[in-house]
Lab assay of single mutants.
Amino acid sequence: MAAAAAAGAGPEMVRGQVFDVGPRYTNLSYIGEGAYGMVCSAYDNVNKVRVAIKKISPFEHQTYCQRTLREIKILLRFRHENIIGINDIIRAPTIEQMKDVYIVQDLMETDLYKLLKTQHLSNDHICYFLYQILRGLKYIHSANVLHRDLKPSNLLLNTTCDLKICDFGLARVADPDHDHTGFLTEYVATRWYRAPEIMLNSKGYTKSIDIWSVGCILAEMLSNRPIFPGKHYLDQLNHILGILGSPSQEDLNCIINLKARNYLLSLPHKNKVPWNRLFPNADSKALDLLDKMLTFNPHKRIEVEQALAHPYLEQYYDPSDEPIAEAPFKFDMELDDLPKEKLKELIFEETARFQPGYRS
């Protein structure tokens, strides 16, 4: 834990890192770190609560700039109880001085990944967590956004079992017609939660990839272990087919990539493993919904509104309290091709509203 900075004593240090967030945020305490930044909790002297502050230093890398800009653009436009918001952003007053960006968010005690390492969940908890994931996802999908990296560590939890989806750095506007060349190379989302079509096709992607990830998360809540822990690309596919069985001819016809289709045709026939054999203690309604989410063919996979209306979630289902976005989200430009200098300018502009004396 960093010592509390005395008023006016300059930035606090946390594990050798400068955290320049005073005077409003003090009493910093280390939480963890990701690929390009550290997260601390801090005391907000204005709202009198502890908050989470993520320090991001992305400006050396085009990919990190892209992810940072995506996350900020999306989260500043989203407003939903099951999606983490941005409360404040701290950065230098000029673009030349801006080396880091500090993002202030609600402090959540833990995440689903940490929880599943230590606790076996009751059916009631599984049901409530799944409902909140789908409630947040309904809003995301209504904005025409794909999260693309749903996994237990991106689901934040607090002691009252509130759940918030975080990390929109890989999110995209849904565009089933656009052929994202190089899709697989830039697709760094965790393999275990990846839909089979991501490994088999490169053309376009749809909201059904997020539903697949939610199915993987439900299976993990039922058993405290990942359902498809593939060691590499082909191993991942083999794990999936080992449980779902061989795809039907109709399902194979959806695979545009001939090499991928021929690979699947070359494999020995596998039978589907019954879900109640894998999860003998699970609620039968939970397994019915799991089956509809972990469907090989993305066109037959359940959609988020149908999933919310499934009998497993009937005690929570309330369409009048499951809000959607006001308007579909649009990125003005494809960020993939922009140089990091341009992305830095866009991050600077996007964060201006939090600067003292800002006038829109």
Rank of each mutant, 00 (worst) to 15 (best):
I209M: 04
T295V: 11
L265Y: 11
P328F: 04
G245E: 03
Y36M: 08
D20G: 12
Y358T: 10
H125W: 04
K342R: 02
N257F: 02
L313P: 04
D177T: 11
I324T: 14
A219I: 05
L146K: 08
I90C: 15
I256E: 08
A2K: 15
D283W: 15
Q66D: 04
I90F: 01
A325R: 10
L338D: 12
A3G: 15
C216T: 09
M38G: 05
S248I: 12
Y205N: 00
Q249N: 14
D235P: 02
T94D: 14
Y317T: 12
I86R: 09
D251L: 03
A327N: 15
Q66I: 15
H299K: 07
R50N: 14
L170V: 09
H120P: 06
A52R: 02
I243M: 12
E349V: 03
I72M: 04
A2L: 15
H239G: 04
D283H: 13
Y263F: 00
D291K: 07
W275V: 09
H310T: 10
A174V: 00
T118N: 14
P226V: 11
F129D: 04
I133Y: 07
M199E: 05
H80T: 13
D336W: 13
L69G: 13
D235W: 06
V51Q: 13
E33W: 15
H125A: 02
Y113V: 07
V46G: 10
T206R: 03
Q97I: 15
L313Y: 09
F331R: 15
I86V: 15
L107S: 05
S213Y: 03
G182Q: 07
I133N: 00
F348M: 05
F168L: 00
E350S: 15
D336M: 11
L137V: 15
L338E: 12
S284M: 09
L264D: 05
I165T: 08
L346S: 08
K231I: 12
Y30C: 04
I347F: 01
H269R: 07
C127L: 04
L335A: 08
N144S: 04
I302R: 02
K259L: 03
I324G: 13
T118Y: 15
L258I: 11
S41Q: 12
I198M: 04
N82V: 11
P226D: 04
H239K: 11
F59I: 00
I84S: 14
Q97F: 11
K259H: 09
L267W: 12
L156T: 09
L200Q: 00
F329Q: 09
T181Y: 07
M293A: 10
H269A: 14
K292I: 07
G182C: 06
A52W: 03
F78T: 13
Y312N: 00
F331H: 08
V145N: 09
R148V: 02
K285Q: 06
K330D: 14
M98H: 08
K300P: 08
A6C: 13
E197L: 02
D210S: 05
E303Q: 15
Q105N: 13
S202Y: 04
L156Y: 03
S284F: 07
R191S: 03
L121T: 10
I72W: 06
I53A: 14
P323D: 14
S202G: 05
M108S: 12
P356T: 07
L278N: 08
L287T: 12
S248R: 10
W275Y: 08
R172L: 00
P226N: 13
P356L: 10
T190W: 04
D106K: 14
F279K: 07
R50H: 12
K117M: 01
R353N: 12
Y358Q: 06
T110K: 05
D337F: 14
D291Q: 08
I103E: 05
T295P: 00
I90T: 12
I211N: 00
Q315W: 15
T295D: 06
Q119W: 12
V39C: 12
N224S: 02
N297E: 10
L234E: 06
L313K: 05
T185W: 03
S320R: 13
D162T: 14
C161L: 10
T160H: 08
C161Q: 05
F296M: 10
F129L: 00
V214F: 03
F78R: 07
I165M: 09
E341Q: 13
L294W: 07
V101T: 07
G16F: 13
D20L: 09
R15S: 00
Y316C: 04
M13E: 03
I103Y: 08
L75D: 11
C254G: 11
V46A: 12
D318M: 07
E305Y: 14
V14G: 00
S320G: 10
E186Y: 08
D149R: 02
R359T: 09
T94K: 11
K259E: 03
A309C: 15
G34R: 01
I211K: 01
D336C: 13
L294C: 05
T160G: 09
L289T: 03
K231D: 12
V101E: 00
F329E: 09
D162S: 14
I86C: 15
A282H: 15
I56N: 00
P328G: 10
F59M: 14
N201Y: 01
P11F: 15
L146T: 08
K151Q: 01
F59H: 15
L237K: 04
G34T: 06
L346W: 14
P268C: 09
A2C: 15
D124P: 10
P176D: 04
K138F: 12
P196E: 01
P176Y: 05
P196K: 01
T159N: 02
K231F: 07
P152V: 11
I83E: 09
S213R: 00
V21C: 07
I198T: 09
F348Y: 02
S320I: 10
Q249S: 14
E350V: 02
W212N: 02
Y128C: 05
T206Q: 03
K270G: 09
C65P: 07
D106T: 14
S360R: 05
A3F: 12
C254L: 05
I255F: 01
H178T: 05
S246R: 01
D210E: 03
E197M: 03
L170Y: 04
Y102M: 08
